[in-house]
Computed example of a mutant assay.
Amino acid sequence: MPTRTLRITNDTLAGDPFGQELTVEQLVEAGARVAARKPFQNRHVPGQTDTIVVLRHQGNVFEFYRTPEKDLLQDASVTNFQPAYGQRLKRRLQKAHRASRQSIDKVRIGDTERANYVSVTFQQGCLSAVHVEPYVD
């Protein structure tokens, strides 16, 4: 049976799927562990070295671009929806699934500028995986 994919535009979900911005500190406080750190030369600030940080938390993986001012989520793969951020994500994305009256396997949510994307996978109507791809310059 072919995979059925629904593509929708939703600036709110694509731009902020977790309902609030996640930070490295929040995830570490919740029990995440740092899996990798890599220095990265900032393209916009001469002489500034930022850091790419990969975190693992209860089967979920997050990649952040860390500057002295801010943590910027670059990528997230969520398959465990038990943590608080997973519960928020699940509640917000279930609405996207219900918006479709047809049986679908995947939802690809993008914003109007086609910069931020959230890919959602359902198995037998239940949320099973989310891949968050925010735009980071």
Rank of each mutant, 00 (worst) to 15 (best):
L6R: 12
L6C: 11
L6M: 14
L6S: 09
R7D: 08
T9G: 10
T9A: 12
N10Y: 11
N10L: 13
D11G: 06
D11P: 10
T12Y: 05
T12H: 09
T12M: 13
L13A: 12
L13C: 07
A14F: 11
G15M: 10
G15K: 12
D16R: 15
F18W: 13
G19Q: 07
G19I: 10
Q20S: 14
Q20L: 11
Q20V: 10
E21N: 14
T23F: 07
E25Q: 15
Q26D: 05
E29G: 07
E29N: 13
A30R: 14
A30W: 03
A30V: 05
A30K: 09
G31Q: 06
G31V: 10
A32L: 12
A32G: 09
A32T: 04
A32Y: 04
V34D: 00
V34G: 00
A35P: 07
A35S: 11
A35M: 14
A36R: 09
R37F: 00
R37V: 07
K38A: 05
K38R: 15
P39G: 04
Q41P: 08
Q41E: 13
R43I: 00
H44A: 08
V45G: 00
V45I: 15
P46N: 06
P46F: 09
G47C: 09
G47I: 12
G47Q: 03
Q48A: 13
T49P: 02
T49F: 02
D50L: 08
I52F: 08
I52C: 02
I52P: 00
I52G: 01
V53G: 02
V54T: 13
V54I: 14
Q58A: 12
Q58G: 05
N60I: 06
N60H: 06
N60L: 07
V61T: 13
V61N: 00
V61C: 01
V61A: 05
V61M: 06
E63Q: 11
E63K: 12
Y65E: 08
Y65R: 05
R66S: 04
R66N: 01
R66P: 01
R66W: 11
P68R: 04
E69T: 08
E69A: 14
K70Y: 01
K70I: 10
K70V: 08
K70R: 14
K70C: 04
L72Y: 13
L73M: 12
L73H: 06
